[in-house]
Computed example of a mutant assay.
Amino acid sequence: MKLEPELRDTFMAEAAADDRPAAQVMRELMRDYITRRREARDYDEFVRRKVEVARKQRDAGLHFSNEEVEADAASRRVDLLRRAGDAGL
C-alpha cells in the first residue's frame, strides 16, 4: 500500500501512543472494513429480495393501499376502545 508520509507517520505515532503495534491496528481496521462491506452487501441483497417479493405481490393483486390499511387500523382502534370500555378499563 502506498501512503502519504504524513498519514503514515501520524498513524504510527498514534499506534505507538496506544502502545500497540501498527500492524495489529491495521489488521483490526482491515477486518472491520471487510465486515462492514459484507454487512452492507448482505443488507442490499435483503432489500432487493424484499422489493422483488413486494413487486410480485403487487403484480398479483395481493396488496393494499395506504388508505385501506389506515381505514382497517382505525376500525380496529374503535373496536378495541369499545371492548375496553365494555370491560370497564
Rank of each mutant, 00 (worst) to 15 (best):
M26Y: 09
E52R: 02
A54H: 11
D9I: 10
S65E: 09
G61H: 00
V53I: 14
E39T: 03
A74Q: 11
H63K: 00
D59T: 01
K56Y: 03
R58Y: 13
R49Y: 11
K56S: 09
E45G: 01
L80H: 05
Y43R: 13
E6T: 15
E67C: 00
V69L: 09
R37Q: 10
R76V: 07
D9A: 15
L62F: 05
A16P: 00
Y43S: 03
L80V: 10
E52L: 06
V69S: 01
R37V: 10
D79F: 07
K50F: 05
H63Q: 01
V53M: 08
A60L: 08
D19S: 14
A73W: 07
L81T: 08
D32R: 03
I34L: 10
A60C: 03
E67K: 09
R37W: 02
R27Y: 08
D18M: 15
M26R: 07
L7D: 14
A74C: 04
R38Q: 12
P21V: 07
V51I: 15
G61C: 01
S65N: 00
A15F: 11
R8L: 15
R31T: 03
D59P: 00
M26C: 11
R31L: 08
S65Q: 00
R38Y: 04
K50G: 02
V78K: 14
Y43F: 13
N66M: 05
V53Y: 08
A73Q: 09
A54D: 09
N66T: 05
D9P: 01
A13C: 03
P21Y: 11
R48K: 14
R36S: 04
V51Y: 05
L29F: 12
A13I: 01
G61I: 00
R41I: 12
E45S: 10
L7Y: 13
R76F: 06
V51D: 15
K56I: 05
R55D: 06
D44I: 01
E70L: 06
A71Y: 06
M12G: 00
K50W: 07
R82I: 06
R77C: 06
R76T: 08
N66E: 04
D42G: 02
L62N: 13
S75Y: 02
A71Q: 12
M26E: 08
V69E: 03
R55K: 13
M30H: 06
M30N: 05
T10A: 14
V69Y: 03
R31D: 05
D9Q: 15
T10C: 07
L80K: 04
